[in-house]
C-alpha cells in the first residue's frame, strides 16, 4: 500500500493474462539484455551469461504460455531507475529489463552477470504472469557468490534459500556461461515467492 493508505484509491484487481498473451507483442531485444537493439553498435558492459530454465506446475509439467520479466542491476550494481538517471555508473547500453513469453514452458535469456548493490549478493528479480494466476514475483541468485551467505533475501527464506540459487551449468553458449534456474510454481519444491503488494 502507499504510505498514505487511508486516502489511497482502490486498486484495480490484478487478473490472469490467460493462455493467449499475444506473441505479436514479443520484442526480441528484450530476450537479449546485452543488446539494446539488434544492429546498433553498443553492448552492455560486464560478463555475458545465459539464464536458462523451465517453469513447472504442481505436477512437474511445463507451464506453457508463461510470461517472464527480468529486472537487474548492471555490472556495477546500479539499477537504471529515475533515481540514478545521472549516475556515472549507469551503462547506456543496458536497461536491465527483459521479457519473454515461453510457448513451451522452457525459457532462455541472454544477459550480463549483475553487479552486487551495497549489502546484497548479485540477483535478478523475476516476475511471472501466466494463465490461472495473477502476477507472482521472486528473486534469483547465483551459485558460487560469497555474498549469498549474508544477503537479506536469502537469509529471510532460511532453509529454502537453495531454491533461489541458479546453478552454474559448466557449459557455455556463444561464449557465455550458462546458469540454470527452474521455477516451480506450486507444490513440491515450490519456489519461494514474495508479496510485493503487501510488503
Amino acid at each position: 500500500m502507499s504510505p498514505d493508505a487511508k486516502n489511497a484509491l482502490p486498486a484495480t484487481n490484478e487478473d490472469t493474462c490467460g493462455p493467449y498473451f499475444p506473441i505479436y507483442f514479443r520484442e526480441p531485444a528484450l530476450e537479449d539484455l546485452t543488446r539494446v537493439d539488434a544492429g546498433v553498435v553498443g553492448q552492455a558492459s560486464g560478463t555475458p551469461i545465459v539464464l536458462r530454465g523451465r517453469v513447472l506446475d504442481r505436477h512437474g509439467d511445463l507451464a506453457h504460455g508463461a510470461i517472464l520479466e527480468l529486472w537487474q542491476a548492471n555490472a556495477k550494481g546500479v539499477y537504471r531507475t529515475p533515481a540514478h538517471g545521472d549516475d556515472a555508473d549507469i551503462d547506456p547500453w543496458f536497461d536491465g529489463f527483459g521479457r519473454l513469453r515461453t510457448a513451451s514452458g522452457a525459457y532462455e535469456f541472454r544477459t550480463i552477470m549483475p553487479g552486487a548493490a551495497a549489502g546484497r549478493a548479485p540477483n535478478i528479480t523475476v516476475t511471472i504472469f501466466s494463465d490461472g494466476i495473477s502476477r507472482i514475483v521472486t528473486q534469483l541468485f547465483f551459485e558460487g557468490q560469497g555474498a549469498n551467505a549474508t544477503d537479506p533475501v536469502l537469509l529471510a527464506v532460511g532453509d529454502d534459500a537453495p531454491r533461489l540459487i541458479a546453478r552454474h551449468d559448466g557449459r557455455t553458449a556463444n561464449g557465455a556461461e550458462v546458469y540454470l534456474f527452474d521455477i516451480v510454481m506450486a507444490g513440491d519444491g515450490e519456489t519461494p515467492f514474495f508479496d510485493d503488494l503487501e510488503s
Partner: peptide, 19 residues
Amino acid sequence: QRTPRERLRLIPAAARESF
C-alpha cells in the same frame, strides 16, 4: 496447477527497492 501454495514471503526492507 499453477497457484503457489505457500504463503508469500515478505520482502526484507533492505531489499525492497531491488524489487
